[in-house]
């Protein structure tokens, strides 16, 4: 198959299909499903269909009406996917929205909003999130810079910290803009399960696992642990059960 490359500068639209490189600078619209080796957009881009790409870069506003399937992806600004995202490696900065996310490595800075589940191998997030279903990963690392919510969190190692926001400059301003200055740093979940769990600023009905550390700002209804439990002064654990 011949590799077609296409570039939109300014404003334009392209038909879906199979491409080598697709570049959009300015404002671009893709009509139909698109398969590309490389997809790069700066400005505003919209795919009216599914997008499958080896490499994906979006800066500015990106919207996909279908599913997004990537090997490697990076988005800065606003990413909206009506369907599900599947990515081996995905780095997000800014605000991102999708119905569901599966894949390997997910790193996000900013806010993430997912209707259903996020199931990846590694989940690293600094900021805030809203996950309607399950957040599951071998490693879940969260630095809270706002409100975070998930129905359930499960995995091997789960670490949640209240962010220090000692960052200067642009990132700090951006986070302030996204979450509102002085917004509450807090994670709320029904159930958190893992072999190793360290929590701060978390409210949960049930935390269950092997080695558990409940840090400052936590309020947990019930902790069930099999190995160790540490509760920091100031944290509230209503009920502890070993075994």
């Amino acid at each position: 198959m011949g590799e077609r490359n296409v570039t939109i500068s300014g404003a334009g639209r392209i038909e879906g299909g199979s491409y080598g490189t697709v570049k959009i600078a300015g404002s671009g619209r893709v009509v139909g499903d698109l398969v590309a080796e490389e997809f790069k957009a700066a400005g505003s881009a919209k795919v009216e269909g599914n997008l499958k790409a080896q490499r994906f870069e979006a800066a500015g506003a990106f919207r996909c009406e279908g599913n997004l399937e990537l090997e490697e992806g990076e988005a800065a600004g606003s990413l909206k996917v009506v369907g599900r995202v599947r990515a081996k490696e995905l780095k997000l900065a800014g605000s991102a929205q999708a119905k569901g996310i599966t894949g390997g490595y997910l790193r996000a800075g900013g806010s993430l909003s997912v209707e259903e589940n996020v199931e990846v191998e590694i989940f690293r997030l600094m900021g805030a999130f809203e996950i309607g279903g399950l957040l599951s990963a071998d490693r879940v690392e969260v630095e809270l810079e706002g409100r975070a919510r998930a129905r359930e969190i499960g995995g091997e190692k789960i670490v949640v910290r209240a962010g220090q926001r000692s960052l200067g400059g642009f990132l700090s301003q951006a986070l302030g803009f996204l979450f509102g200055q002085g917004s509450h740093k807090e994670l709320v979940a029904e159930v958190i399960e893992g072999d190793e769990i360290e929590l701060e600023a978390t409210q949960a009905r049930l935390v269950r696992g092997g080695k558990i550390k409940i840090g400052p700002g936590c309020r947990i209804e019930r902790v069930e642990y099999t190995e160790t439990l540490e509760v920091a002064p100031g944290a509230v654990v209503k009920e502890e059960v070993k075994g």
Binding site: E119, D138, G154, G155, E156, E193, R208, G210
Partner: peptide, 21 residues
Amino acid sequence: PKKEVLRLTGISYGQLYRWKR
């Protein structure tokens, strides 16, 4: 219940969630 599954089989939460994924 899930907890009982883990107790009976000796698998970890990490394994359970990984296998589900």
